[in-house]
Simulated assay, not measured.
Amino acid sequence: MLRFTANLSLLFTELPLPERFQAAKQCGFDAVEIQFPYSLPVEQIGDLLAQQDLKLVLFNVDADTLLQGGEGLAAVPEKREQFKVAVGQTLAYAERLKPRVINVLPGRCFDPQRLGEYQTTFCENLAYAAAAFAELGIKTVFEAVNSYDMPGFIVDTGDKMLDVLEQIGHPNVYMQYDIYHMSRMGEDCAGFLRQHTDRIEHIQFADSPGRGQPGTGAVDFKTLFDIIANSDYKGWVGSEYRPTADTAASLAWLKTYAVK
Rank of each mutant, 00 (worst) to 15 (best):
residue 138 I to E: 01
residue 186 G to K: 09
residue 141 V to G: 06
residue 63 A to P: 13
residue 75 A to L: 07
residue 99 P to Y: 02
residue 34 I to M: 12
residue 236 W to Y: 15
residue 219 V to C: 06
residue 247 T to K: 04
residue 170 H to P: 01
residue 217 G to P: 12
residue 91 L to P: 11
residue 107 G to I: 07
residue 133 F to R: 03
residue 156 D to G: 07
residue 206 A to L: 02
residue 81 E to F: 04
residue 11 L to I: 03
residue 96 R to S: 11
residue 38 Y to I: 03
residue 53 D to C: 02
residue 154 I to D: 05
residue 197 T to M: 09
residue 153 F to N: 15
residue 21 F to D: 08
residue 175 M to G: 14
residue 253 W to Q: 06
residue 17 L to W: 01
residue 44 Q to Y: 06
residue 132 A to G: 01
residue 229 A to H: 00
residue 56 L to A: 08
residue 158 G to N: 14
residue 7 N to G: 03
residue 246 D to K: 11
residue 129 A to E: 07
residue 160 K to R: 14
residue 230 N to E: 14
residue 170 H to R: 06
residue 207 D to M: 00
residue 109 C to M: 06
residue 129 A to S: 13
residue 102 I to M: 14
residue 43 E to T: 10
residue 214 P to Q: 08
residue 98 K to F: 00
residue 118 Y to A: 05
residue 207 D to Y: 00
residue 122 F to M: 10
residue 171 P to F: 00
residue 235 G to H: 00
residue 159 D to Q: 15
residue 68 Q to W: 08
residue 260 K to W: 10
residue 224 L to T: 09
residue 129 A to Q: 12
residue 238 G to A: 09
residue 2 L to F: 05
residue 80 R to Q: 13
residue 21 F to M: 09
residue 87 V to F: 10
residue 26 Q to S: 13
residue 33 E to D: 12
residue 189 C to K: 07
residue 93 Y to W: 02
residue 62 D to G: 10
residue 58 L to V: 01
residue 260 K to V: 10
residue 19 E to N: 07
residue 38 Y to M: 03
residue 89 Q to Y: 03
residue 153 F to K: 05
residue 245 A to Q: 15
residue 166 E to N: 14
residue 258 A to P: 02
residue 234 K to T: 10
residue 43 E to D: 12
residue 86 A to Y: 10
residue 179 I to D: 10
residue 77 P to G: 04
residue 96 R to K: 15
residue 145 V to M: 07
residue 179 I to L: 14
residue 50 A to V: 12
residue 85 V to Q: 14
residue 99 P to E: 03
residue 259 V to S: 13
residue 223 T to K: 15
residue 157 T to F: 04
residue 96 R to N: 07
residue 164 V to A: 04
residue 45 I to T: 08
residue 93 Y to P: 11
residue 161 M to Y: 00
residue 248 A to K: 15
residue 156 D to V: 00
residue 45 I to K: 05
residue 119 Q to S: 09
residue 212 G to K: 10
residue 148 Y to E: 15
residue 164 V to C: 08
residue 225 F to C: 05
residue 23 A to Q: 09
residue 206 A to I: 02
residue 140 T to H: 05
residue 139 K to D: 10
residue 105 L to V: 14
residue 158 G to I: 05
residue 81 E to Y: 08
residue 208 S to F: 06
residue 250 S to P: 09
residue 80 R to S: 10
residue 230 N to D: 14
residue 193 L to K: 03
residue 39 S to M: 12
residue 188 D to E: 04
residue 180 Y to V: 08
residue 189 C to R: 12
residue 2 L to S: 09
residue 242 R to T: 14
residue 182 M to T: 13
residue 223 T to M: 15
residue 51 Q to L: 09
residue 169 G to T: 00
residue 71 E to G: 04
residue 110 F to P: 02
residue 94 A to N: 09
residue 11 L to P: 00
residue 245 A to G: 15
residue 232 D to Y: 03
residue 164 V to D: 08
residue 52 Q to W: 01
residue 234 K to I: 00
residue 117 E to V: 09
residue 203 I to N: 05
residue 45 I to E: 01
residue 198 D to P: 12
residue 171 P to D: 02
residue 48 L to Y: 01
residue 114 R to N: 09
residue 228 I to K: 04
residue 100 R to E: 15
residue 9 S to G: 03
residue 170 H to I: 02
residue 65 T to Q: 15
residue 19 E to C: 00
residue 254 L to V: 04
residue 222 K to H: 12
residue 120 T to G: 07
residue 96 R to Q: 14
residue 59 F to C: 05
residue 109 C to R: 06
residue 3 R to N: 13
residue 111 D to S: 13
residue 34 I to Q: 07
